[in-house]
Design a protein around this nucleic acid. Structure first.
Lengths: 231, 231
DNA sequence: ACAAAAGTGTTAGTACTACACCCATGA
DNA sequence: TCATGGGTGTAGTACTAACACTTTTGT
């Protein structure tokens, strides 16, 4: 490794906290109270503190914002953003995370609730966002869409016990597509380790009672759930 | 973002440069000439310099080691490694990259060739490596294996013009498995945008002349090339 | 009884596997 | 002519898509 010309920089973790609320794909943003970008929307995030890893910093930020522990969400690295001018104050290298969390993030927003808000992903992408956070949001959303295809991450958007139809709605909302209920049911229940039946049923969605499931232990799908009409 | 307790840290890019040589899956390692870990094998890497992004730092390191430009390789972020004690000297946060490069990295090793060497991935994982580089290597190899499944990255291991059989050998070596030549040929030639026929043929592998192809423009596979016997 | 949602049956199409077989070259 | 690897044919199996249809509740 080289040595002396290297400047020390600040490292931050920025989190794209995604959820499904009111049939909508939403992200948690904070309104900045001080410069730079004062008054604009930004992703929650914070600097790396002494003695912690970046993953731990992300988990800490997630918990401060949503009162959720990292293990209850699906918290994954999306990428590193290091343009020299991305922060006008000083050099900041940011590690971006995508957090997929269930709907009512128990206690919707943590300490400084006043300036945090859930907002539709689609709308957020049309707002001005602070720093390079629009790019980060774009990448994290694409990351999440792919995760649904190749992994069991969709269960992270559901409450602890959920029906197959609720899981299907996650796919439909994140992918913005319609899926055949019958075929979807067959497919996900046949994949071993994806869903664990609880034996209970619920009628909370109306109609015939639906079986309840918990997330299984499998994380990767060998055959992906194909997303219609890819390019 | 928080502010004052955050310490500035050093940021480095470490590169896992992978290739196929002599029918073997190999990685480029450097023998460290000074402490810490003096005399041990390590991944090439270097600190972030002023005014460059981490991606650019990785590209620069790749070029210093292999005389290859980033655009000629497939250079992708694998993850961020930030254990507080991973470097005994000071706090270093490292961004790990996987570089997939064709066999004879034209001018095998750049400036300080004496202490760089290609070594079998399997053997490298059984050597003591400096820092947390064994973990990084493990993750990068898994990353590469998955990339072969879901993307067209395998072409990055081939020279500019290659046969279907040469491409198949990439899969076989990286996945450590045998693939049916006929079925593989049909599958990859049918995927639009994966391979572009040049119209030429070659007999460099013996037998009947084989058609030559160039890498196409597609990067993701809609239906993955399934890796046999996943868990 | 009716509406609504869950879940199953069915059929046609498509993709994958295994393996036989033919093709085009160098020696 | 033979060996070698390239590439195609084919049959059986498995998965998928589309959609009809049955099941089980609430009202």
């Amino acid at each position: 490794m080289g040595e002396e010309t290297a400047p020390a920089v600040f490292v931050a973790a920025d989190i794209v906290i995604l959820t499904i609320r009111r049939g909508d794909f939403e992200v948690l943003l904070v309104r900045r109270g001080k410069p730079p970008f004062k008054g604009e929307l930004a992703l929650p995030g914070g600097f790396l503190e002494p003695g912690e890893t970046v993953d731990q910093a992300a988990g800490r930020e997630l918990r401060e914002e949503t009162a959720l522990w990292a293990k209850d969400a699906r918290l994954e690295q999306v990428g590193v953003y290091s343009d020299p001018d991305r922060d006008p104050r000083q050099r900041v290298v940011s590690v971006a995370y995508a957090a997929m969390v269930p709907d009512p993030p128990e206690a919707a927003a943590g300490g400084d609730a006043a300036d945090t808000q859930w907002i539709s992903v689609e709308r957020a992408l049309n707002e001005p966002l602070a720093f390079d956070h629009r790019r980060i949001l774009t990448d994290a959303v694409e990351h999440a869409r792919r995760q649904l295809e190749y992994t069991t991450a969709a269960t992270a958007f559901c409450r602890e016990e959920f029906t197959v139809a609720e899981l299907r709605r996650v796919y439909e909302i994140v992918w913005q597509t319609k899926l055949d209920p019958g075929n979807f049911h067959r497919k996900v229940t046949r994949i071993e380790g994806f869903l664990e039946p609880t034996g209970e049923t619920t009628t909370r969605d109306g109609g015939r009672p639906a079986g309840l499931y918990r997330a299984g232990t499998r994380r990767w799908l060998q055959l992906p759930l194909s997303r219609p009409d890819r390019s």
